[in-house]
Computed example of a mutant assay.
Amino acid sequence: MTSIAIIGAGLAGITLARALAPHARITLFEKARGLGGRMSTRRDDARQWDHGAQFFTARTPAFREWLAPFIADGTVAQWHPRITTLSPDRPPYPRPWFEPHYVAVPAMNALVKGLARGLDIRLQTRVAELERRPAGWRLWDEHGSHLGDYDWVVSAAPLPQARALLPLPDRIFDGFAMQPCYALLLAVDDGSLPGWDAAVVREAPVRWIACNHRLPGRNRRAGALVVHSTPEWAAERLEDDQAEVQAQLLEVFCTLTGVAPTAITGARLHRWRYALSAEVKQPAPGFLLDPQARLAACGDWCLGGRVEAAFTSGLALAGALARRL
């Protein structure tokens, strides 16, 4: 049976692996300690923060059909938040949403964890090098350890990592781009917070604030906020002292929301080097594929971002590969 190595265990990689499992021997490699990629979740004893993707929409019939059983069994729930818009120089005002928004329950990574059951996944394993072999590819980690030989290698990692690892012509990646973002994770007593559940922010270093504990299926008694910076602000400070970056974002948050600094009982910062995907001018077919080299790549960055794009990209690549196996 054909062997395929998939690098990255976010939604794109897991979708691809699940679709190809009947046709090939699949091994997933994930450098992080857990699954989910940007659908991952941080926790402490009482709180949790979905510090990457905050929600997702379902705009295509294929994704809506795929989601239906997860909605039925409670793994996915529709989110009905009280949304406001914040700006340093204007009063807050309500912000309506005109399409359903969804979250996974009890955390964003629950959807990927459910899909991953039964798959061969190697966590905390960073694929650092591909060696061309007569019958395919040999994989090595950063310590020089052999990770196995495979007929095909697919990157489901962020664009810069795929570009650095796959021995493909650089021009094949032209037209795609990703941007960074900082996530500030705060512990705040719910009684000290505003009445809204999430805020879109304008004209500030922050672009999004969410009361994570008020999402469906979360512990509502343990106040947990996620504050996302703008990509432009993050790019200018990506290598700055992280304590200073955290302090700056904390000050902006308190100014925007009116939350007193003394009400914040905990804070941590996460630096997403590859957080947001730029719009793709020519998104079709939604993946990269070199049949001669037996190399491929998929991910939300192939279709301009969003959780749905990760699913669509992984599923589309699975169809293209299945026809070649």
Results as ranks from 00 to 15, higher is better:
106 P>A: 04
106 P>S: 07
106 P>E: 00
106 P>W: 03
107 A>C: 02
107 A>G: 09
107 A>D: 02
108 M>W: 03
108 M>N: 02
108 M>F: 13
109 N>W: 07
109 N>I: 14
109 N>V: 15
109 N>C: 10
109 N>K: 05
110 A>D: 00
110 A>Y: 00
110 A>T: 06
110 A>P: 01
110 A>R: 00
111 L>G: 01
111 L>A: 02
112 V>D: 00
112 V>G: 05
112 V>L: 04
113 K>C: 14
113 K>Q: 15
113 K>L: 06
114 G>C: 08
114 G>V: 12
114 G>F: 05
114 G>A: 13
115 L>Q: 05
115 L>Y: 12
115 L>C: 04
115 L>G: 08
115 L>D: 10
115 L>A: 07
115 L>H: 12
115 L>F: 08
115 L>E: 08
116 A>R: 01
116 A>N: 02
116 A>E: 05
116 A>K: 01
117 R>G: 08
117 R>D: 10
117 R>S: 08
117 R>E: 11
118 G>R: 03
118 G>W: 01
118 G>P: 02
118 G>L: 04
118 G>V: 04
118 G>H: 03
118 G>Y: 01
119 L>Q: 13
119 L>N: 11
119 L>F: 14
119 L>T: 08
119 L>M: 14
119 L>P: 05
120 D>C: 15
120 D>W: 10
121 I>C: 04
121 I>Q: 06
121 I>V: 11
121 I>K: 05
122 R>I: 15
122 R>V: 07
122 R>D: 07
123 L>Y: 04
123 L>I: 07
123 L>G: 02
124 Q>K: 04
124 Q>T: 13
124 Q>S: 04
125 T>W: 00
125 T>C: 02
125 T>R: 01
126 R>T: 15
126 R>L: 13
126 R>V: 12
126 R>P: 03
127 V>Q: 00
127 V>L: 01
127 V>W: 01
127 V>T: 00
127 V>P: 03
127 V>C: 04
128 A>T: 09
128 A>I: 11
128 A>L: 05
129 E>R: 11
129 E>C: 09
129 E>A: 13
129 E>S: 10
130 L>Y: 05
130 L>A: 03
130 L>W: 07
130 L>G: 00
131 E>H: 09
131 E>K: 15
131 E>Q: 12
131 E>I: 10
131 E>D: 14
131 E>G: 14
132 R>A: 09
132 R>F: 11
132 R>L: 07
132 R>Q: 07
132 R>T: 14
132 R>I: 09
133 R>W: 09
133 R>M: 15
133 R>L: 12
133 R>K: 14
133 R>H: 15
133 R>F: 11
134 P>C: 05
134 P>M: 11
134 P>E: 13
134 P>R: 05
134 P>N: 15
135 A>F: 13
135 A>Y: 12
135 A>T: 13
135 A>M: 06
135 A>R: 13
135 A>E: 08
136 G>R: 07
136 G>N: 09
136 G>E: 06
136 G>C: 15
136 G>W: 09
136 G>H: 12
137 W>I: 02
137 W>H: 06
137 W>F: 10
138 R>C: 10
138 R>F: 08
138 R>V: 01
138 R>L: 14
139 L>I: 04
139 L>D: 04
140 W>G: 03
140 W>I: 13
140 W>M: 10
140 W>A: 05
141 D>S: 05
141 D>G: 04
141 D>V: 09
